[in-house]
């Protein structure tokens, strides 16, 4: 690295910043599952299996989220990214 690069180079984020960002994502995800009922992981798995009968997808293309609202209302949100048509 030349001296000029030293002045020109944009500061790359430090590893601590990367660590924090990764943690914020995983912890938010963990907390989402924390309050979910016991049957939730099994139900999620089964939903994925059903979709797979028709479309080939990876499990990370499906997000199943259970949102608990204040007034005794739970919303099950299902997001599936379908593969592009060939």
């Amino acid at each position: 690295m030349s001296l000029l690069d030293y002045f020109r180079a944009k500061k790359e984020p430090t590893t601590a910043v990367t660590a924090k960002e990764r943690l914020q994502i995983i912890v938010a995800h963990q907390r989402g599952e924390r309050d979910a009922p016991d049957y939730f992981p099994a139900m999620k798995q089964e939903i994925i299996e059903v979709i797979r009968k028709y479309v080939q997808i990876d499990s990370d293309q499906v997000s199943v989220q259970l949102d608990q609202n204040d007034d005794n209302l739970s919303v099950l949100e299902l997001n599936v990214t379908l593969p592009e048509k060939p």
Binding site: T14, A16, L23, V27
Partner: peptide
């Protein structure tokens, strides 16, 4: 190590947990 950006700071961990 926190000063050089190699380690999560107290504030970072407090914010996450």
């Amino acid at each position: 190590r926190v000063a050089t950006g190699e380690m999560l700071s107290v504030a970072d961990v407090e914010e996450i947990l």
